[in-house]
């Protein structure tokens, strides 16, 4: 079967700092594959490996800096055969509908496909909307939150967890499936996989035109910090530990 996996390249949230004016600064952050999209790539790679003769291509849409050689290699070292990336500053911070519109263009360039796998949500907005919007753009069925995924007799067999129950679902292809992070632990690529990744085909292109957006971002700021008493003791002072214990007793 022919599998596509969509992933988002984002700044590493561990590197985001707060500037003095309360705005977020991601200028020094490394570009990485959004955390739960790594689980999606792994689920897709396992589906490919379980079905002999399958192909796996990754698709991604993002700003110019998403065209990052280390990150592209990272994607291609995880069982992905080929990458289709649309990287252009007009594609920064798109809403889910605009992202899906652009991803659909890459889907049409990536050849025949049976299933498109997407992650649970991206690190930035965690919208859980790009998969369903992509299904709408391509006019195919969509199932969210798969915790298990296999291909049997021409159909996808899906298990998923809702809030208080699980469901077993059969789905004909072509379809879009979003996967829950627990579906698969991302692999740690070996040196050979990383070297091989450098030789795999990468199709990187600019945007054809700036996509139409539905949502306007009004502001992005750091959250307000709570005011705390900051009564701090030192255990190396003779009575520091006792005083601390008393203070804790008072709180409880």
């Amino acid at each position: 079967m022919n599998i596509l996996v969509a992933c988002k390249i984002v700044p590493d949230d561990q590197d985001i700092t707060v500037a003095s004016d309360g705005s977020l600064d991601s200028s020094r952050a490394h570009e990485i594959v959004s955390q739960y999209d790594l689980n999606a790539i792994e689920a897709a790679a396992q589906l490919k490996e379980a079905n002999e003769g399958s192909t796996l291509k990754a698709i991604s849409v993002g700003p110019k800096k998403a065209d990052d050689s280390k990150t592209k290699k990272d994607i291609l070292s995880r069982g992905v055969d080929e990458l289709y990336l649309m990287a252009d500053d007009s594609l920064a911070d798109l809403d889910s509908r605009a992202t899906a519109t652009e991803l659909a263009k890459l889907v049409n360039k990536a050849g025949d496909w049976d299933v498109i796998i997407v992650g649970d949500g991206s690190a930035d907005d965690y919208a859980k909307q790009t998969g369903v919007q992509l299904a709408c753009a391509l006019d195919v069925p969509y199932v969210a939150g798969a915790t298990n995924l296999s291909f049997q007799e021409g159909n996808l067999e899906i298990q998923r967890n809702l809030e208080s129950e699980s469901e077993d679902i059969e789905l004909a292809v072509p379809a879009v499936v979003s996967v829950s992070p627990e579906i698969a632990e991302p692999r740690i690529a070996g040196m050979r996989d990383i070297l091989k990744a450098g030789k795999k085909p990468q199709n990187v292109e600019a945007a054809e035109e700036k996509p139409e957006e539905s949502i306007e971002t009004v502001s992005i700021k750091a959250p307000k910090q709570a005011d705390r008493k900051q009564e701090v003791f030192d255990a190396s002072d003779g009575e520091g530990l006792d005083k601390f214990v008393s203070a804790v007793k008072e709180v409880l």
């Binding site: 539905s214 949502i215 009004v218 700021k221």
Partner: peptide, 17 residues
């Protein structure tokens, strides 16, 4: 008002549609 990067930021946004 929505959480951004899991709460690292706070995002305000408005549909234009």
């Amino acid at each position: 008002t929505s959480v951004y990067f899991g709460g690292t930021g706070v995002k305000e946004s408005k549909p234009e549609t």
